[in-house]
Write a protein that binds this DNA or RNA. Structure first.
Lengths: 170, 170
DNA sequence: ACTGAATAGTTTGTGTACCAATAAATGTTA
DNA sequence: TAACATTTATTGGTACACAAACTATTCAGT
């Protein structure tokens, strides 16, 4: 294939990105059937467990989501008794989020969120093929970082892109 | 970086996929501000213009979306007078979708949906770098296809994954 | 021709995901 | 200190995205 035609390659790359979207979405639905929680919900309690008690804006930052979205997710998790919300004593604007015992139990019993088809498929590959995918995505995210100005909706709280990629904060 | 550790690479690949998600989402919002239509809406009328009149299930197939989702998008486009829905005379179960003059006018005046930051960034790269990204994503979608059973909600109508990827129909 | 399966599109309900506007608390500055 | 701005989380509203259930139509087999 690799016909050296910029236009064609860009179009195919965009199509492939859409494909990946699709599959990741399906995976989210699959996790839901297995655990009774949706992908984002599992993701949230994983983050909470890893970090310990944290404020809503911190959680949103670590999940790359807007606070409004996280509020909805927390509503559902709270209704199920998996997390608690408490107003901070020192700063009453802040809401601290933490796991309940039930939530912690569920996290432990969830045998790796990542054990979905994508991760599984990736893990079955050899180092050479993984390297190809890795470099391609890495290059892609680099150009995304270069062209993507921060939308500045995160306020001032540190954004903490996990792998230390991303530019300096405003 | 290419430290040959399967576990680490898989984790970083997943993180990068999430990054791409984020940026594509932002792009969709940006297109919305410029055209008054959302990303999926623009995508839909682009597909309709490219293919001409087509049925709802065909449109859904070409967009990799469930028919239910497309129905909602069509509702909004129809309300704005950009598309029309007509029941087919030969098969009254079928609904044919086509652009109105207004819709065609809007498509022409939309200077390339793809002129977003991602495509822009990609187009600014040279063939060698594009090749890296292309191969990485291509390999990724291959393993996704291999592990991803068709959800089988498209019925029998030809699905037409544009680049000739995807399995034979049931 | 008639019953039953399959198909096409839609409705209904849940869950993201975001923006705009808001309320309450804290900070800043005149 | 009092007016103003900022921060933090929430509510209200729109738009996806999908599953399950439903209606209408067509097809298949007897």
């Amino acid at each position: 294939m690799a016909k050296p035609k910029t236009e064609t390659m860009v179009a195919e790359i965009m199509d492939n990105i859409r494909r990946v979207f699709q599959v990741v979405n399906e995976q989210s639905k699959l996790v839901e059937r297995e655990t009774g929680l949706t992908g984002p919900q599992v993701w949230a309690i994983k983050v909470i467990e890893a970090h310990g008690t944290l404020r809503v804006s911190e959680l949103a930052g670590k999940m790359y989501l807007h606070p409004t979205t996280v509020v909805g997710i927390l509503d559902r998790l709270e209704k199920r008794g998996l997390v608690t919300r408490t107003r901070s004593a020192t700063d009453r604007r802040v809401v601290d989020v933490s796991l309940t015992d039930e939530g912690r139990r569920l996290v432990d019993h969830t045998p790796e969120v990542a054990s979905n088809k994508i991760t599984h498929g990736l893990e079955s590959l050899g180092i050479p093929e993984l390297t190809i995918i890795y470099h391609g995505l890495d290059r892609l995210t680099q150009i995304l970082d270069a062209t993507n100005l921060p939308p500045a909706f995160f306020g001032t709280s540190e954004i903490n892109l996990p792998k230390g990629k991303r530019r300096s904060q405003p």
